[in-house]
Design a protein around this nucleic acid. Structure first.
Lengths: 125, 125
DNA sequence: ATAAACCCTGACATTAGTGTCAGGGTCAAG
DNA sequence: CTTGACCCTGACACTAATGTCAGGGTTTAT
């Protein structure tokens, strides 16, 4: 199938499919006229790519094991777990940072609220 | 004081100080030769800017109330709390998303670990 | 007067996936 | 042969604060 049909089937934009091609994630064969020709398996492959992107993995990370997971079960691809753990650590770090900022903001709001109750006739700047 | 000294005193790069100037956060007077001349109060102002940036606020948001908070207590500036609440909502959304992805990753790792115990002689790709 | 140490502006790069446009080729139906 | 629906590549935009470089002025001390 050609790129427009794959896009329609998967809901992934043509632009993104071309990007996946350039990143080596999904490299279709080419017709004589230069058009990309995708195998029927490409549809599942696109869905798999989207799944990993939604986990926050980069195209480069995905490229590192996509070939394997399309052929085997995820568990057979030794590259997968390290990438998952790496991403997990990154996410935990982000959550910790965000939580700290969140607490800070909450404390600031709380502190302002008790210092400037709404029945005070004072305006701002 | 000139920009180099302010940078040295605060640890904020000259580049960033010029950026704050352009964003209207910290607008020094100019000497006859065009050099920026900062008042002694600028040092505290820079620290305040950094504090808000570390809370994840944008220079635009900070510009919205910096003038007021430099003159009064934060609680007197009515623009502050809405910005805090907005940022808080944003952060909570991000944490929720990250937490969902985190659970997904953990589940995937767990699932792989029990399917492919390390005593199995199978390699990946 | 010259060198060192300042200062200035403007511009490009950074992240990473996607949108979008320009300019152009291909192909099928009428 | 023309129209419309495809397809191609390349390039710029986006976010937002910061790094960095180019090219050039100023000041201070020797």
């Amino acid at each position: 199938m050609k790129i427009g049909e794959l896009s329609a089937r998967t809901g992934v934009s043509i632009r993104s499919l071309r990007y996946y091609d350039k990143q080596g994630l999904l490299t279709p064969t080419r017709l004589e006229n230069g058009y990309r020709e995708y195998s029927p398996f490409a549809e599942q492959q696109v869905r798999t790519i989207q799944l990993y992107l939604n986990l926050g993995l980069s195209t480069e990370q995905i490229a590192g094991f996509l070939h394997c997971v399309m052929k085997n079960k995820e568990a057979f691809c030794k590259e997968v777990v390290p990438v998952y753990r790496e991403k997990l650590a990154e996410i935990e770090e982000q959550i910790a940072l965000l939580s700290a900022v969140k607490s800070n903001l909450e404390e600031r709001i709380r502190s302002i609220m008790e210092e400037d109750p709404p029945n005070q006739p004072l305006g701002g700047e």
